[in-house]
Simulated scan of single mutants.
Amino acid sequence: MSFADIVPMTADQRETFERDGFLVIPGVLSSREVSRYESAVDGVYAEREAAGRLGADKSLHQLSAVASCPELAGLVNHPRVFGLVTSMLGWNCHVYHSHFDIHPPIREPKPFRFEWHQDGGRQNREIETDPRPRLSVKLAFWLSDVSEPGRGNFKVVKGSHETNRIDGPPRRDIEWPDPEGAMEVCANPGDAVFFDRRIWHARSNNYSDIVRKGVFFGYTPRWITVRDEAVSAEVAAGLTPVQRQLLSALDEGRVNDPVEGGDHAWGHFPDEVPLYGFLRERGLLDSSIPALIP
C-alpha cells in the first residue's frame, strides 16, 4: 500500500469506536518501518540526553513530533490508518498536537500521582455541553512491545468518552484507585491505537525491562489552533501537499491573501485544500459523513 491510497473506516470500526472510544489496529507498521522510526526517535533521545534535557527518570516527552524529528513525517498520513482520521474529521483537518515518548524501565516505585485525564486542556472546563463535543482524535503508533500490562501501556476506561467527569482525589498526589473499568491496552510493535480525545486515559508505569516508545498525533479541524511548533522551511519543502496541510505548512491559495486570509483554514474553498482533492480523486467524499461534504 502506498501513500496514494488510504482505507476509510469500516462500519464495524465506526460502531466499535463510537461505543468504546478507541480502536486497536494491528500491524500498521512493518518491522522495517518500526526499526526506521525507532532509530529516528532514539537519535533525538541521544541528543537530549547529551544536552541534559531528559526527565529525572531519564524519560523523554518530546512535543512537536515532526518539527523535532522530521523523519516521522511519514506517520502523519500513514495509509493504513489515516482513513480513520478522515472518516471522523473529514478533509479540513490538521495535526494540532503531537509528541513522541521514551520511557526507560523504572527501577524504584514512583510517588503516586493521579494522571487520569481527557485531552484538550481547558476545552474540558469551558465547553458546557454534556457530553462535550469530540473536537479531536488521536493516533498512537507503538514502536515498543506493550503486549503485556505494566510496560507503560495506554490505560483507558472503555466508553468513557461520553462522560464529562470521573471521581478523583482532591489533589493528584493523594492515593486513589483507578476508575472503575480501567484497563491497560496491550499492543505489539507496529500496532496503532486510534482514540477519541475525550476518553479518560492515563499511562501505566513501566516496571518492565523494555524501553517504552510511542509516537502520538492529535488531529482536529483546521479552525482550531495549533499547539505544535512549525516545521522548518527545509522540512516543508520535502512534504507532500497533504502533509503540508496536516503540518500547517501551506503557503498557497487564500492563506496569505490580504483580503481573504484566514478563510482558507475555515474550509470555505475546498478546491484549495489538498486533502479535499486527494479524497475527491479517490471517490472518498462520502456524503453520509457531514465533515466530508464540500
Rank of each mutant, 00 (worst) to 15 (best):
W176G: 02
A236D: 07
R125V: 13
D251F: 09
V156I: 11
S35H: 09
W116C: 04
G181F: 04
A67W: 07
V193L: 15
E126Y: 13
I210S: 01
G262V: 11
P70L: 09
D130I: 09
L292P: 05
L250C: 11
A236Q: 08
R222P: 01
I210N: 02
L29P: 00
P104F: 02
V193M: 12
I199H: 03
G168S: 07
E175A: 14
S232F: 10
G121L: 09
G238M: 08
G90Y: 06
R113D: 08
G121Q: 14
L23T: 04
G159R: 06
P221H: 01
F100Q: 02
R244K: 15
K158C: 13
G21Q: 01
V34S: 07
F195C: 06
G120V: 05
V137A: 00
D119Y: 02
P290C: 04
V44I: 12
I224P: 07
E184R: 02
M183D: 14
A187T: 08
L84T: 04
R203T: 15
K213I: 01
P105V: 06
P274Y: 13
V273F: 06
P105G: 00
S2I: 12
G90I: 05
G168E: 04
E38G: 13
L135M: 15
Y207W: 10
D119T: 01
P177I: 06
S98N: 06
A40I: 04
A140P: 08
E128N: 09
A182S: 05
D286L: 08
H268L: 11
V66A: 08
P104M: 04
W200I: 00
V157A: 04
L275I: 14
N92A: 14
D130L: 14
E18C: 09
D263F: 08
R19Y: 09
L284I: 01
Y96H: 14
T10I: 03
D257G: 02
F269V: 08
S31P: 05
E38P: 08
S98V: 08
R227W: 13
S59Y: 03
P170E: 13
A67C: 08
G267T: 10
E148K: 07
R19L: 10
R122C: 15
Y276T: 00
S30T: 15
R151M: 05
T220E: 10
H117E: 00
L292G: 00
S248R: 13
E71K: 03
R171H: 14
R113L: 12
I25S: 12
E47C: 07
G190I: 03
F154N: 00
E15R: 12
W266H: 11
A46I: 03
A11T: 14
R14Q: 15
